[in-house]
Write a protein that binds this DNA or RNA. Structure first.
Length: 244
DNA sequence: CTCATTTGACCTCC
DNA sequence: GGAGGTCAAATGAG
């Protein structure tokens, strides 16, 4: 973990005036960073309601109002940036004022730290939740006009089937027998997510990005509908997978 | 006391 | 010179 002391060591006790010199001393480091920016290997943009819970641990290192945006952009880097030299960073911007707000997250560089191995399943669970949210939202739109007839129930079943299909796509390779753990993780993170949605710049203890499944259809990935529903209870999914 | 966040200053790029 | 990105002292929470 990056220690604050790592910075403090080089600048603690810094009298007035010395600070400026120290900043100049680190200019080479900044330049190196700038060079890195030029040879940046990968960037990825995602839209999410849960920008702070992507499976990795991040440390916020800055915030800036961006021209033309109503909301500030927050800058995060991997918690293991210092310890393991992990180059991963992300920028989080709120894109609207809906409840909960939608965020644009720009990921830069891949993680070289090992944190992904600790919590990637958690990220999978979160990703599943997001997919389910988006899918159920679509179902809600259709159901709203069919609530008093059998068609609504059929639609629900159809949507469940669609969600199950998508979930299997996402957790492909996961041991289904561990789903109980996954479900618990999902509920826990849902709670955290709902809490975090109240702040535009909430704590960055978050976690890992499950590599976005590019195989998924975009209408499952992009939660652009203005409506918001309570997080989906996936208990039925657990039951579904256990009973066949 | 430790550690994460905040925030103003500074840097590089265009 | 403006804008975006980063640094690091100050601050606050646990």
């Amino acid at each position: 973990m990056a220690k604050r002391d790592d910075y403090m060591t080089s600048s603690s006790g810094c009298p007035n005036g010395t600070h400026k010199r120290l900043l100049q001393d680190c200019s080479s480091y900044t330049q190196e960073h700038t060079k890195n920016r030029k040879v940046r290997l990968s960037t990825r943009t995602e839209y999410t309601y849960a920008p702070y819970h992507d499976g990795y641990q991040w440390r916020k290192y800055g915030q800036k109002m961006i021209r033309g945006n109503s909301f500030p952009r927050c800058y995060y880097r991997c918690t293991y940036h210092q310890d393991h030299g992990c180059p991963a960073t992300k920028h989080v911007e709120q894109t609207n004022s809906q409840d909960p707000p939608l965020f644009r997250v720009i990921y830069t560089n891949e993680h070289t730290c090992s944190s992904i191995h600790v919590s990637d399943y958690m990220a999978s669970a979160i990703h599943i939740q997001q997919i389910a949210d988006a899918s159920l939202r679509k179902a809600e739109i259709g159901i709203s006009s069919l609530t008093h007839c059998g068609a609504g129930h059929r639609l629900i079943k159809d949507e469940k089937d669609a969600i199950v299909s998508s979930l299997f796509t996402v957790i492909n390779g996961c041991d289904v027998a561990t789903l109980d753990v996954g479900h618990a993780a999902m509920q826990e993170n849902t709670t955290a997510r709902m809490a975090s949605s109240c702040h535009e710049a909430s704590p960055s203890i978050s976690p890992v990005l499950q590599p976005a499944s590019s195989d998924l259809p975009m209408d499952f990935v992009e939660p652009l509908e203005p409506q918001w529903l309570e997080p989906l209870d996936l208990g039925w999914f657990i039951e579904y997978t256990q009973t066949g």
